[in-house]
């Protein structure tokens, strides 16, 4: 009887170990990141722009290559504190950037002052960041200038700063010449592969758009998990 009990305990332990292993391996297993998109606000894009500095718009039905992230990655930015170079936005407020509302209509976006501005999200703890999705303004086809996205460990972005996106091709922002391309804003926003970089803060720069000198943000989503 005791032997029977011992065997059952052993079997149970084996199953439990197997389950932990499976769970761990699943956590390491990568899946395609799914981003929930808002409703499109306009149809079509500006005509025939083919400069090498501008990313070609997607054809109808065409999708960008998926970003592979661990299965346990979540949105770690939702409801987190947002600060910025323009502490008193012209329209809206900082909270709108992380409130989960990605619609392009009035009342969903925050408008910051003219010229180069930045916004910064404090994730509250150091995280492994796998992707950053950003929607500037998608009620009209426009291109935001000098977009630079950085991940940092301190709020002042002095040490361990890493740029995960930079399309400032002439270094007008003074953060280095970027190799990424500019793109036309749509409801798809822009999902940036952050490749699991560690950091507590995410900072996004922009310098107006083809429509004017103001800077806009509808939503920023940071996909990651607490750093182990």
């Amino acid at each position: 009887m005791k032997t029977m009990q011992r065997r059952m305990i052993q079997a149970g332990m084996i199953v439990a170990c197997a389950m932990v292993c499976v769970t761990m391996s699943r956590a390491q297993e990568k899946t395609a990141l799914k981003v929930e998109l808002p409703k499109p606000m306009f149809v079509g894009t500006p005509k025939n722009i083919k400069t090498e500095n501008l990313e070609r718009p997607l054809r109808p039905g065409q999708k960008r290559p998926a970003i592979m992230v661990p299965a346990d990655v979540t949105i770690v930015s939702k409801g987190k504190d947002v600060t910025g170079s323009d502490s008193a936005p012209i329209i809206g407020d900082m909270e709108l950037l992380t409130d989960g509302d990605k619609e392009g209509s009035d009342g969903s976006y925050t408008e910051f002052g003219p010229g180069q501005q930045w916004v910064q999200i404090d994730l509250g703890e150091t995280c492994e960041i796998y992707a950053i999705a950003v929607w500037h303004y998608h009620a009209q086809a426009r291109v935001y200038r000098d977009m630079v996205v950085q991940i940092g460990q301190d709020a002042d972005f002095i040490t361990d700063v890493e740029a995960v996106f930079n399309n400032d091709h002439d270094n007008s922002a003074g953060l280095g010449i970027g190799k990424d391309k500019e793109y036309i804003e749509t409801n798809s926003g822009r999902v940036i592969d952050a490749k699991g970089k560690k950091g507590r803060y995410v900072r996004l720069y922009s310098n107006g758009s083809t429509a004017g000198e103001m800077n806009h943000y509808i939503e920023v989503e940071v996909f990651g998990k607490p750093a182990s």
Partner: peptide
């Protein structure tokens, strides 16, 4: 040549 683009009017972009 290298190319850049700039907005002229809403939805009209110049190269």
């Amino acid at each position: 040549y290298i190319s850049e683009f700039y907005g002229l009017r809403p939805d009209v972009i110049m190269e």
